[in-house]
Design a protein around this nucleic acid. Structure first.
Ligand SMILES: Nc1ccn([C@H]2C[C@H](O)[C@@H](COP(=O)(O)OP(=O)(O)OP(=O)(O)O)O2)c(=O)n1
Ligand SMILES: [Mg+2]
Length: 368
DNA sequence: TCTGGGGTCCTTCCCCTC
DNA sequence: TCTGGAGGGGAAGGACCC
């Protein structure tokens, strides 16, 4: 065991405009046109857009579909086809796994690969990208660096269809003046909190003492930010991930004001959830509901039962009890049902794992 | 123009036990 | 009123990601 294993060589592979690209594979005649994949209702959002649509009108994921349609009425608007995306994803991941031992899949279109010790990580990834293209007709972008955080940042640099290698040393120079928001896991809320204490760049973040960040963000998040400011990330690549929860939710086309209607939807959601749980043979102990009111207030209620279940009668009964106990006093925009605490231990929220995974999120409940 | 659905993980608070 | 401290686990809220 004397093989050098640090620094590591980590790759992040990310499919280009994934849903839209799969759609183009189904309908090649649309190639070259702006394509937007989104739902059909009045409250739909864009899941993704082809690069043509992005360049023409700045259309991007999570944008309200109504906005996209106004900006680019002549684009081709397509409904999501999840079975097709799952199938394409499975093909992609198969290529990865037949080439590399340590592959961590994230969602449908990304994966991290630990290439430490390989003779040429770059050649390996070039070959993999070519195989993916041959097998699926889809292109991907690859970043190779020394950690998952840096690999992910690096894969963005070459999009679309790029392959970029970047050392941490070069990254420290290159991103010195950039916003901390460049780092995956640092979103708009954290960027604002950092700015409030005089931190607007990665260099400024890197200059702060860990103790100072810990006093503002708490011990874990503070330490996490301290490391990320230095573009430092030791999070390992983990092959398997267990499902922690499953949920089904619906945003109504029009806010629901009547209890009876709400309960009808809840029963349907519970049935749908239990159907999916049964298909995956999942049983959980914590049944929860989620409600979004018309003013965007979110409320969740949950209750844990003795034994793991996915029984429709149990899930429906508990969910209805939770809804009746809460009894929303405003119109309801969204309603959802969730099951958690599968097999082993407690509710995921409280489950303490020895190796806290890389994407430490900064939750602030009572912080303004 | 008005904001999806499916997730993970974090912090806080509270009750309870040791 | 000086009322212990740590930690498991449930519950609620939130940030973030694909
Ligand atoms: N808010 C989001 C973000 C993404 N997705 C879906 C649609 C995307 O096609 C897929 C992959 O997400 P990416 O962030 O990787 O985006 P794309 O693959 O579409 O584009 P890119 O080329 O930037 O990776 O996940 C989604 O439904 N909602
Ligand atoms: Mg992608």
């Amino acid at each position: 065991m004397s093989i050098e294993n640090w620094p590591r060589s980590i790759a992040h592979l990310d499919m280009d405009a994934f849903y839209a690209s799969v759609e183009l594979g189904k309908r090649p005649e649309l190639r070259g046109k702006p394509v937007v994949v989104c739902g059909s209702g009045p409250r739909a959002v864009v899941t993704t857009a082809s690069y043509e649509a992005r360049k023409l009108a700045g259309i991007h994921s999570a944008m309200p579909a109504a906005v996209a349609r106004r900006r680019l009425p002549d684009a081709v608007y397509l409904r999501p086809d999840f079975p097709a995306y799952r199938e394409a994803s499975a093909q992609v991941m198969e290529v990865l796994r037949r080439n590399v031992e340590t592959v961590e899949v994230v969602g449908l279109d990304e994966a991290y690969l630990d290439l430490t010790g390989l003779y040429s990580p770059k050649a390996t990834m070039r070959r993999i990208a070519a195989e993916i293209r041959a097998d699926t007709g889809l292109t991907c972008s690859v970043g190779i660096s020394e950690s998952r955080m840096l690999a992910k940042i690096t894969s963005e640099l070459g999009k679309p269809a790029g392959l970029v290698v970047l050392s941490r040393e070069d990254a420290l120079v290159r991103f010195a003046g950039d916003s901390p928001g460049l780092v995956p896991g640092i979103g708009p809320k954290t960027v604002a909190r950092l700015e409030a204490i005089g931190i607007a760049t990665l260099t400024e973040l890197a200059r702060r003492q860990a103790s100072e960040l810990e006093s503002t963000f708490g011990p874990r998040s503070g330490a996490w930010l301290h490391a990320r400011g230095r573009l430092w990330d030791e999070t390992p690549i983990t092959v398997s991930r267990e499902t922690k929860s499953q949920s089904t939710e619906i945003t109504f086309d029009v806010d629901v004001r009547q209890r009876g209607e709400l309960e009808k939807h809840l029963v349907e959601l519970a049935a749908e959830l239990c159907r999916r749980l049964a298909k995956r043979e999942l049983e959980g102990r914590t049944i929860g509901i989620k409600i979004r009111l018309d003013d965007w207030t979110n409320v969740s209620r949950s209750h844990s039962v003795e034994a793991p279940t996915n029984d429709l009668a149990v899930v429906t009964r508990v969910a209805l009890e939770l809804l009746r106990a809460y009894d929303p006093q405003r119109p309801v925009r969204l309603l959802g049902v969730r099951l958690a605490s599968f097999q082993g231990e407690a509710d995921p929220v409280a489950a303490e794992s020895e190796a806290p995974a890389g994407q430490l999120r900064l939750g602030f409940s009572s912080a303004a």
